[in-house]
């Protein structure tokens, strides 16, 4: 019964955030598909958001949560522009493999 009512240390949330961020970096480095690389960036943004919310909870600061809200809005804008760029690259190169997109000129 005491196990059920136990509290969670906030460092566990931070450790989860660090693990998610590292997995995002790993995906960014290892994945070879342009869309999956972009998804890894979203994963890193989410991991950072989790630590923002954790610290906002620690210091009872509302502004930490508002910062997460701004990060979400910027991430939405970034996703729209990034996916449009991916569509433009696919039209020009006809591929999504990052190893084949290694020239800046068309």
């Amino acid at each position: 019964m005491s196990f059920i009512q136990q509290d969670v240390p906030l460092s566990w949330y931070l450790l989860l955030s660090a693990a998610l961020f590292s997995l995002g970096v790993l995906g960014f480095l290892l994945k070879r598909n342009l869309i999956t690389v972009f998804m890894s960036i979203e994963l890193m943004l989410n991991a950072v958001n989790l630590s923002f919310v954790t610290f906002a909870h620690q210091w009872h600061a509302v502004k930490g949560q508002i910062f997460v809200f701004f990060v979400m809005m910027v991430a939405a804008a970034e996703a729209a522009v990034g996916l449009a760029i991916i569509i433009a690259i696919f039209r020009a190169r006809n591929t999504l493999a990052v190893d084949r997109i290694d020239l800046m000129k068309l």
Partner: peptide, 18 residues
């Protein structure tokens, strides 16, 4: 997890936006 940390607005925004 956001809801567990007491951020109910962010939990809703996370589901709707992300």
């Amino acid at each position: 997890l956001y809801l567990l940390l007491g951020a109910e607005f962010l939990a809703a925004a996370q589901i709707i936006v992300y």
